[in-house]
């Protein structure tokens, strides 16, 4: 398994501006198990600041688990996670401090059902950061503008389409001014006609320099927005390569078999 030896800098196209960018995440030999089940085995991953990483792989390969570990929603068993040059893999008690700096978007949106769109966005800044209500409100409206649904500010989640809900969820995540956005299959629960509007917002963020790590099966998005693609299988990183190389057809047989399968 030579892939594990991939040096940090080589996962980004040489010569690109991001190649020399500082690393936001540096994961080394991360292991995670649930009881006796090894969900993640010896994961290595580097994520330069401002880059976009797409995680792909079959169901059960550990993509969601890896994202949750990066956010400390799951404690890790072994290995190291350097986040912004700080070791966070051993942080247990103050995990919420790290989570404030990293935002997450979920497959099922998980908007707070008892709050309107704008209140969903205001909640964490107010309660976690102590931002005054009026300021949080103004900021929330600006974020709704950014995700292109300013007119839905006072709608409740059950009054919004899936695509609209997911964009509110993205705005809610952005409201914490995160250093990174983690997306877990953000468009998998959406009807085809709504996938586009969500991916457009994500692409815009990504091109605007937001460090993003995204689990998705949307290969068109990956080609357009990703700097590197990470292919996982059975809890391992099979391959982590710059986007163009990844799609050049020179990857490992396992990668090609998987790509064939989801392209046809």
């Amino acid at each position: 398994m030579t892939h594990a030896a991939t040096a940090p800098a080589t996962t980004v196209p040489p010569g690109s501006a991001k190649a020399s960018a500082p690393l936001l995440y540096q994961v080394r030999s991360l292991y995670k198990s649930f009881g006796t089940f090894q969900a993640l085995k010896s994961i290595d991953l580097t994520v330069p600041t401002g880059s976009t990483t797409v995680l792909i792989g079959p169901s059960g390969s550990g993509k969601s688990t890896l994202l949750r570990c990066l956010n400390l929603l799951e404690p890790i068993n072994e290995g190291s996670i350097l986040f912004n040059n700080q070791e966070i893999g051993t942080v247990v008690r103050d995990a919420y401090r790290i989570r404030r700096q990293v935002a997450m978007v979920f497959q099922n949106f998980e908007l707070f059902q008892h709050l309107s769109a704008v209140e969903n966005i205001m909640l964490a800044p107010m309660k976690v950061k102590g931002v005054p209500r009026l300021e949080a409100h103004d900021r929330a409206l600006a974020l709704l503008e950014k995700v292109r649904i300013p007119d839905k500010a006072d709608s409740y989640p059950d009054e919004l389409s899936g695509g609209q809900q997911q964009r509110v969820a993205i705005a809610r995540a952005l409201a914490m001014d995160p250093m990174a956005m983690l997306y877990d299959e953000p468009t998998s629960a959406l009807d085809p006609e709504m996938i586009r509007e969500v991916l457009d917002v994500m692409t815009e963020l990504s091109q605007g320099g937001m460090t993003s790590i995204c689990v998705t099966h949307e290969l068109a998005f990956a080609r357009r927005a990703a700097d590197q693609i990470v292919f996982m299988e059975q809890g391992e990183v099979v391959e982590a390569r710059p986007t163009e190389q990844f799609f050049s057809g020179t990857g490992s047989p396992r990668t090609r078999a998987f790509l064939d399968q989801i392209l046809h």
Binding site: N71, Y96, A103, M104, A124
Partner: peptide, 14 residues
């Protein structure tokens, strides 16, 4: 739902 709590925790809430 459990996801609601996860969403809250992911925003850095205690």
């Amino acid at each position: 739902g459990k996801g609601q709590r996860t969403a809250g925790r992911s925003l850095g809430m205690k």
